[in-house]
Design a protein around this nucleic acid. Structure first.
Length: 567
RNA sequence: CGGGGUGUGGCGCAGCACGGUAGCGCGCCUGCUUUGGGAGCAGGAGGCCCCCGGUUCGAGUCCGGGCACCCCGACCA
């Protein structure tokens, strides 16, 4: 491709609206254009990269035994109503109506449809196992699209679905895909951390996320020195112990205007770990009181999973008051008539300070279960960096990251609900056991740039670079330079390299800066100066200094450098 | 949905408090010069100032109402 004929130009200044590195650089490099919030036009550079990522994904999924399919983006609402996920997805679903007034949605994912396909095509255990995958645009009306391709409303995703006869076969499929994912991310130049993940309301038992470490990421994961790794949504920990002691008599204490744990701790001179907080939630309209140690935050994902709640939110002041709670002084002591959940942290330690359920008073020496009851003890604690890891190997460390892949063991929820069954060896009908496996294709591109750039621009991992070689002709209007550059362009192209040829009549600085910004792996420079010395200059984007080679050694040298970057 | 911010040539911004018919840098076009890290000089093109309404002799600027986009949070299989 000749730069002089290329659609896009680079921007000299950072676009004002982009914060994260990938968003900023993709706009500056002319890879994409924004059309609406979270919606982008992919221009040639981005598309070439996306095609390469897709190709890697196809190769690895095929190697894992996958078969590619293509699903509709337009779904009748009934498909979603059958599994109840129209309600579960809520406003995230894009709704539309056809000319007959029939309601349709734009597919945010495809479990329902693929299950229907399998139902129509699978009858016997002899037809299993199956691993089907699709690479398609998905639509989600995200509450807040952000950071360019990191969270869009229209984005490309590879989804794979496994169908097996039982749990054991599912394990095999799960491991096989997991292995494929490791290959995919490695080949995309993306070191990932595999973490235990929350599987969500309708997810199954086991689930892992592939996380690319990045400050701009939306996920927090906790890591132990011994290899424990989990998303904070799911992570467990061993929190610092609360002070112990003989239970003393419970007594009220005046605490005027003291409504936060921090203030309470300071006011009474009691460690936060010796306080209890009572948090009031509305779960699908039902009130739930959670009691947990004061220094620990409630993990709402764990709570939601326990309650099987669709919508979980903090109760409003009115709702709290109606249930007999005093904001700032809420307490599990003496409370009944609503669902009460206690975190295990209330079972260790003694003589806690808790609210008194009346203004300006707390209770000292509150002990569980002597002074209050709960309906269930459930781990709803948010693990924190610094807590002892559950594997006992040391303190947990927190890192931010981008979720580029997620694998789930779904089980039989969809197949039972939608009637996807098979006949086993004994002639009995069973629900097919399902797994699902996603990779955010466009997010992989953004994540790759987040992780591979410097202050000058992108540094593309070679396997997903839009072009392999950036050929620059300095003084392109010089006939000898032009002749040699044209010859090299021809030769490199004929040897199978994808060459971006900067044949523009522009100053050296402009061309070098553009090359650094676009970040293709190998740069080749033809110039009058080099010509005079009988050499051509070659440099990897990641390296500081160029090497000089004879013109007839260019192709060989380029191939050698690219091989170094082959992942 | 809560909080904050921004909408002015292709891009980045100023102008708005104090109303008088739009400006700077970059980019773009033409010519000459220059030529290894975002060149110089000269000339030039390009703007429903987000939209609708109001106030006013007159609105980019004041008032009211919308819309869009960005950031933080909530949310998010």
């Amino acid at each position: 491709m000749r730069a002089s004929r290329f659609l896009t130009k680079t921007l000299r200044q950072d676009p004002g609206e982009a914060e994260s590195a990938s968003h900023r650089l993709m706009l500056r490099a002319g890879m994409m254009t924004q059309v609406a919030a979270g919606v982008y036009a992919y221009l040639p550079l981005a598309l070439r990269s996306i095609h390469k990522i897709e190709q890697i994904v196809r190769e690895e999924m095929d190697a894992a035994g996958g078969q590619e399919v293509r699903m509709p983006a337009l779904h009748p609402i009934e498909v979603w109503a059958e599994t109840g996920r129209d309600a579960a997805m809520g406003d995230t679903l894009f709704h539309l109506h056809d000319r007959r007034g029939r309601e349709l949605v734009l597919a945010p994912t495809h479990e329902e449809v693929i299950t229907a396909v399998v139902r129509a095509n699978v009858e016997s255990y002899r037809d299993l196992p199956l691993l089907l995958y699709q690479i398609q645009t998905k639509f989600r009306d995200e509450p807040r699209p952000r950071a360019g391709l990191l969270r869009g409303r229209e984005f490309d995703m590879k989804d794979a679905y496994s169908f097996d006869t039982g749990a054991e076969a599912l394990d095999t499929a799960y491991q096989r895909v997991r292995e494929a994912y490791r290959n995919i991310f490695r080949r995309c130049g993306l070191p990932t951390i595999e973490v235990e993940a929350d599987s969500g309301a309708i997810g199954g038992k086991e689930s892992h996320e592939f996380i690319v470490q990045a400050e701009t990421g939306e996920d927090t994961v906790l890591l132990s020195p011994g290899g424990y790794a989990a998303n904070v949504e799911r992570a467990t920990s061993i929190p610092p112990r609360a002070p112990e002691g003989e239970p003393l008599a419970m007594e009220a204490v005046d605490t005027p205007g003291v409504t936060t744990i921090a203030a309470l701790s300071a006011f009474l001179g009691v460690p936060e770990a010796q306080t209890l907080k009572a948090v009031f939630y509305a779960a699908d309209g039902e009130m739930v009181l959670v009691t947990i140690r004061g220094d620990i935050e409630v993990n709402e994902v764990k709570l939601r999973n326990h309650l099987h709640a669709r919508e979980l939110r903090l109760a409003t002041a009115e709702e709290s008051a109606a249930a007999g709670l005093t904001p700032g002084y809420a307490s599990p002591v003496g409370l009944s008539g609503i669902q009460r959940i206690g975190d295990p942290t209330i079972q260790q330690g003694a003589n806690f300070v808790a609210g008194a359920n009346r203004p300006d008073q707390h209770l000292r020496n509150v002990n569980y279960p002597r002074d209050f009851e709960v309906d269930a003890i459930v781990d709803v604690a948010t693990a924190q960096a610094g807590d002892e890891a559950p594997d006992g190997t040391g303190p947990l460390e927190a890192v931010r990251g981008i979720e580029v892949g997620h694998i789930f063991k779904l089980g039989t929820f969809y197949t039972r609900t939608l009637g996807a069954e098979y006949t086993d060896e004994e002639g009995k009908l069973n629900a097919i056991v399902m797994g699902c496996y996603g990779i955010g294709i466009t997010r992989v591109l953004a994540a790759a740039i987040e992780q591979n750039h410097d202050e000058r621009g992108v540094i593309f991992p070679a396997p997903i670079a839009p072009f392999q070689v950036h050929l620059i002709a300095l003084n392109a209007d010089n006939p000898e330079v032009s002749a040699q550059a044209e010859a090299l362009y021809e030769e490199l192209g004929a040897s199978g390299h994808e060459v971006f040829f900067d044949d523009r009549v522009e100053s050296a600085g402009v061309k070098f800066n553009d090359a650094d910004l676009l970040g293709f792996p190998v740069r080749v420079v033809v110039s009058p100066r080099n010509l005079k010395s009988g050499v051509v200059e070659i440099k990897r984007r990641r390296d500081a200094d160029p090497t000089q080679v004879a013109p007839d050694a260019v192709e060989r040298t380029v191939a050698g450098l690219l091989a170094k970057d082959d992942l």
